[in-house]
Design a protein around this nucleic acid. Structure first.
Length: 851
RNA sequence: GGGCGCGUAGCUCAGUGGGAGAGCGCUCGCUUCACACGCGAGAGGUCGCUGGUUCGAAACCAGCCGUGCCCACCA
């Protein structure tokens, strides 16, 4: 510490994160600490792949929490000397990014179709060049020690190569195929989306009952539906095979009202006898269940609603109407024909697009699919065998259940922004070519080729993130040094969407699990318990919290509030973090400005020294263990409590006289403790710990690459802990007695010791002189006999005394009752009974003294 | 319909069988030479309800009530 530093330390009584954080971060970057060489093996090294945020994204609390946890472990391992890589990058986020740019175009009065595909995609790249680094910069504000030199993007050149390789391989294995199939059509993004991008919401609709006349009879079959407009595409009516009411109708036909088409009456056990009339209209073209039934029975598939959400020409007179308009018109027409039997309100759950928010239109369309069964099997096994460990453990079951039920994945999207599917068609000879790189001409007939228009689901590329970012499919040094990665932290909502798929592709391609541990972190809710969401306006901006309280405060707060359950955002916890940073700063000022010039080392000379060293080392052991097991909430709270309570409230107060005296032993011990506390806290509070470290006499380089403390068990000392904790307890009782007896805060009271001498600090911290003479004892607190003096108010003392007697009587009564219970004495463990006896005796003795 | 959580001090949350805890808030006292983002001392909980297991339950079991999330093709 030079003179300028000393002056600054003396003058700065308040830690100011805004002055520190930018400067410290630049120093880290200049040091190149976050950019490890690709050396060694994945076994020796430590690596984490960040869940890539959307390139359109802004840092939200989920990122901030997840980032704080990853950074804590990455920093801890880096400090331990392991070659540590935290790979960072962004996801091209097909629909989200395309929408942002389309919105921009709309402001200019244009659509993407005005530009054409090529120009539009060019435009999205421009957008990305301008705005795509926002979230990366925000991770820097958080202090995340990612390797910013190895930043990746899911559409960059090498990544495209990896995606094509995966597509080709899966196609060659027969997993990827093209089919006309029922998909979730999102009219908002004009694309198919996967099951996982659909959310069901409760909606109040009307349930219509419609009479379908049975051919050559005066009977009618009444069907119930919430979507009467789809009756135009009905190709059957189904009843349950066991339903006796309709047994003789099966095999006959109905005649569709309005349409006039003959449709068969079929039997299928999907039909619920109890529901409505027990007759179900079958619309294979517009309902997922009906689609399955239709395929099973070989029914015709008619589509009356098009991709634009409007009725097609097959809808006859209703063609051109939107589905909603058609619904009204069809209902009116049915009413007019007297076919509408009933209409009643009906609440049911309806699929909506998670992407655009619009109601999903189930449609049959030509899409690319990936069969999942073969990929899922090994991914199930590695989790069953705990080769991939999921914490908290209840998520293992959830993962396995979902994987057992996995269905084909619709991987094509009707978008322009994304990985264009590497498939080419020859119109001349109808050949389909799947290739990793664009072929020149058709290999069969030499004809012109036309590339598939669709792009891949964004999650298709995210699924290979842990190895594609390391250079796969090439055999790169990075891949050898950092794959498999060490662990993954994630929000539970992407357990299926992303985590499961990474495990599947990891096993299929590099041939090893992508990570050994998956930690599913808690969800931080808004202050009022609702979800944090942009649309609800309930989001809390982490950047604002960083601006106001500092990154360390936010990191501490988020970790502290993130127990395994879901938890509401707590300003108090962030403020607790802010206060801790300030307390660290000020306690460090006390030590650094007063310590003698000595080497930091444990140099205990008395019981208090042995006590604090024991507590320090035990805290290091415990906090470390909690960090390693992803118990971040308890880790930070325990570090807080050791530092604030034990070190500041007690030890620093105890040793101040020795410190001011320039005593070398206590200086060495304090500098040692400070060095270790800074190291211990650095993974969770990197900025303030790094800043303070720059003033520490042992500082030879940055704390970010200084050794993380390993607990020194030789300093554990049960006897010293017991002695000092006894002294602390006595001090607290003495202080409480003074307060309740109305003694002025500054007064020193005379007393004598009758019994075991307490540790030396008790007298000073409680402001009692233990060598008082002459006066009568008026109170007894442990071994301390308080002597009468003119600073005491007799009435208050008497009142205090009586209160204590009351407490003791209650304690004695409690003890007697417990020990009088024969069952307790006979069945409880001996040590528990002995402890009770000891306590009872102490309370009886004290009560006797006071009477 | 199935699954997983949660209900502990005014608030947000710890606490998995032996005397109810933390942070914030509140009350009282401290301009004590690191820190008022501070120091000291307090007040404040029939641990959702009802049964059960146990010498002993906030904790274990059952049921109920309340609440949140995930999954699911009953029109």
């Amino acid at each position: 510490m030079d003179e300028a530093q000393r002056k600054k330390l003396e003058a700065t009584t308040r830690y100011d994160p805004s002055e520190v954080e930018g400067r410290i971060f630049s120093e880290w970057m200049e040091g190149g600490y976050f950019h490890p060489e690709a050396e060694g093996t994945a076994e020796e090294n430590f690596s984490v792949a960040i869940p890539p945020p959307n390139v359109t994204g802004a840092l939200h609390m989920g990122h901030a929490l997840n980032g704080s946890m990853q950074d804590a472990l990455v920093r801890m391992n880096r400090m331990r000397g392991r070659n540590s890589l935290w790979i960072l990058g962004t996801d091209h986020a097909g629909i989200a990014t395309q929408s942002v740019v389309e919105k921009e175009l709309r402001k200019e009065g244009k659509s993407r179709h005005d530009l054409g595909r090529e120009a539009f995609v060019e435009r999205v790249w421009e957008w990305r060049a301008e705005y795509g680094s926002r979230i990366v910069e925000q991770y820097k504000r958080l202090g995340a020690s990612c390797d910013y030199e190895r930043e990746r993007f899911t559409l960059d050149e090498g990544y495209v190569k990896a995606v094509h390789r995966v597509f080709k391989k899966l196609f060659d294995k027969g997993y990827i195929y093209r089919d006309n199939y029922m998909v979730n059509w999102d009219p908002g993004s004009h694309s198919a989306i996967s099951d996982l991008e659909v959310e069901n919401r409760e909606v109040e609709d009307a349930l219509y009952s419609i009479d379908y006349p049975v051919e050559d009879s005066d009977q009618v079959l009444t069907v119930a539906t919430v979507r009467p407009e789809t009756m135009l595409a009905d190709t059957a009516v189904a009843v349950n095979p066991d339903d006796e009411r309709y047994a003789e109708l099966v095999g006959k036909h109905c005649v569709l009202p309005l349409v006039g088409r003959r449709v068969p009456i079929i039997a299928d056990d999907h039909v619920d006898v109890e529901f409505g009339t027990g007759a179900l209209k079958i619309t294979p073209g517009h309902d997922p269940n009906d689609f399955e039934i239709g395929r099973k029975h070989g029914l015709q598939e008619i589509g009356v609603i098009g991709p634009d959400g409007r009725m097609t020409s097959d809808a006859g007179e209703f063609a051109g109407l939107t589905a909603a308009e058609a619904q009204k018109a069809v209902v009116e027409a049915l009413r007019a024909e007297g076919r509408l039997r009933a209409e009643e309100p009906y609440v049911h759950s309806v699929p909506f697009s998670h992407r655009s928010g619009e109601r999903i239109e189930p449609l049959i369309s030509l899409q690319w699919f990936c069969r999942m069964d073969e990929l899922a099997r090994p991914a199930i096994e590695v989790v069953e065998r705990d080769e991939v460990n999921i914490t908290p453990p209840q998520w293992k079951r959830v993962y396995l259940d979902w994987m057992e039920e996995i269905r084909p994945w619709c991987i094509s999207r009707q978008l322009w922004w994304g990985h264009r599917i590497p498939v080419w068609y020859c119109d001349a000879c109808q050949e389909t070519i799947v290739a990793e790189a664009a072929p020149e001409r058709c290999g069969t007939c030499g004809g012109e080729l036309r590339q598939e228009e669709d792009v891949l689901d964004t999650w298709f590329s995210s699924a290979i993130w842990p190895f594609a970012t390391l250079g796969w499919p090439d055999d790169t040094p990075e891949l050898r040094a950092f794959y498999p990665t060490s662990f993954l932290t994630t929000a539970r909502e992407i357990l299926f969407l992303w985590v499961a798929r990474m495990i599947m592709t990891g096993l299929e391609f590099p041939g090893a699990v992508p990570f050994r541990d998956v930690y599913v972190h808690s969800v931080i809710q808004a202050r009022d318990g609702r979800r944090m969401s942009k649309s609800l306006g309930t989001g809390i901006d982490p950047l604002e919290e960083i601006d106001v309280h500092g990154a360390d405060a936010l990191r501490f707060g988020l970790l502290a509030m993130s127990s395994t359950q879901d938890v509401r955002f707590s300003d108090a916890k962030v403020e607790q973090g802010r206060d801790l940073a300030n307390k660290l700063w000020n306690a460090s000022r006390l030590i650094l400005l007063n310590a003698a010039a000595v080497e930091p080392a444990p140099r205990p000379t008395c019981v208090e020294d042995r006590w604090i060293l024991s507590r320090l080392e035990r805290t290091i052991a415990s906090v470390t263990e909690k960090l390693e097991t992803y118990d971040f909430a308890h880790a930070v709270q325990e570090a807080y409590s050791f530092f604030w309570r034990d070190l500041c409230d007690w030890y620093l107060e105890i040793v101040k006289p020795r410190l001011y005296d320039g005593e070398e032993e206590v200086s060495a011990t304090l500098l040692y403790a400070l060095e270790r506390v800074l190291g211990l806290l650095h993974p969770t509070m990197p900025f303030v710990s790094e800043e303070i470290w720059s003033y520490h006499p042992a500082q030879r380089g940055h704390l970010a690459v200084h050794a993380f403390p390993a607990a020194d068990e030789s300093l554990f000392d049960d006897a010293a802990e017991a002695d000092v904790e006894g002294g602390i307890g006595l001090t607290q009782r003495l202080r409480a007695w003074r307060d309740l007896a109305g003694v002025p805060a500054g007064a020193t009271l005379p007393a004598v010791i009758d019994g075991v001498e307490p540790p030396g600090f008790v007298s000073r911290l409680s402001r009692f002189e233990f060598d008082g003479v002459g006066a009568e004892p008026v109170a007894s607190i442990g071994p301390v006999r308080v002597l009468d003096s003119d600073q005491l108010d007799g009435a208050a003392v008497a009142e205090r005394l009586e209160k204590r007697r009351e407490e003791l009587r209650a304690e004695v009564e409690r003890g007697e009752r417990k020990l009088g219970n024969e069952g307790f004495v006979a069945k409880a463990p001996v040590e528990v009974v002995e402890e009770e006896r000891g306590k009872l005796e102490r309370y009886r003795n004290e009560l006797a003294e006071l009477s």
